[in-house]
Write a protein that binds this DNA or RNA. Sequence first.
DNA 1: CAGAGTTTTCAGGTATGACTGAAATATGGC
DNA 2: GCCATATTTCAGTCATACCTGAAAACTCTG
Lengths: 165, 165
Amino acid sequence: MADAVVAQDGGAPGEDPRDTYVRQVAAYWERGGLTHAAGLILGYLSICEPAAETQARIASALRLSAGSVSTQLRQLTQIGMVERVRLPGERSARYQVPQDMWTEMMATEDQRIAGLRVLADAGAAVMPAERPDRIHSLDLMVRFWEAEWPATRRRLAAFLAKEMP
Amino acid sequence: MADAVVAQDGGAPGEDPRDTYVRQVAAYWERGGLTHAAGLILGYLSICEPAAETQARIASALRLSAGSVSTQLRQLTQIGMVERVRLPGERSARYQVPQDMWTEMMATEDQRIAGLRVLADAGAAVMPAERPDRIHSLDLMVRFWEAEWPATRRRLAAFLAKEMP
DNA sequence: CAGAGTTTTCAGGTATGACTGAAATATGGC
DNA sequence: GCCATATTTCAGTCATACCTGAAAACTCTG
């Protein structure tokens, strides 16, 4: 089996550009709050062949334990960056990056805005006398995005519809 | 001194609504990658009077060590959520939430987009034969935001100019 | 239903990093 | 330039959470 993407045993490490890419993705998402293992899985699932892999194959490719892979895949599935699919006649489930992952990701932006809305309202109840802008500016920002986001998402949908092959 | 915001010693905890707010802000930003201490400082600096406080006052109000406050303030200053100001004739520096913090925050969005651009380009070099959309869709998303963001920022600037008192 | 294979759960080891407290350094007023 | 004070640095402690490995639970094929 010559198509080992990440789990090369010896040899010069990082020689395979795909291996480099996997680590690069992991590094990026690690800054975004994911664990290292989750980032590795995400990177691997972005370039592996076939696109949908079993837990066992992911574990061996990335040299992670079965437990880690199980846990991280559940997290990734929960936040919508990975989806579980079943192929007929196959005992094991497969996991893959959803076709519309980024669209789904963008959809969660609503929740982030809602979270800031809660903060802005809570702030209004403790408005300081001096520099009330400290609280007020957050409210402005939230109001802007509440107004802006629906149209932005429509433009995104239109853009994707036009550019998708 | 009856205006202790967070550092009440005894009594029912969380009675002061400002204390509740500080913890609420801390909880929110903790999910956003900041430390608990940084979140507390951010919440405190959003409602304290006066708006600009010394490290010593922040530390005693939040019951944090001087070291923690020093470290966290540096981090917060670095990412632009806090600014250091000096008052004439005062030995100690003061720290406050900048007037235009959210505008500054939005400006860093460019860098996040640039970070994804790097990832998208690196992905192009390891394009999988099956489901190339896994790499391609990221590129699309980045291209959308690279095109969209300048106009969005202009609209934000116009909105703030109109709404600011 | 049996049973192999898959997935989840969980306790334990480990690493990471936040917080503290004190010492060292830097700073501004005199 | 001196000195009190503010700030930073840093080693040590502690908490958190990741990862592993194995056992338990589950699931699907035959």
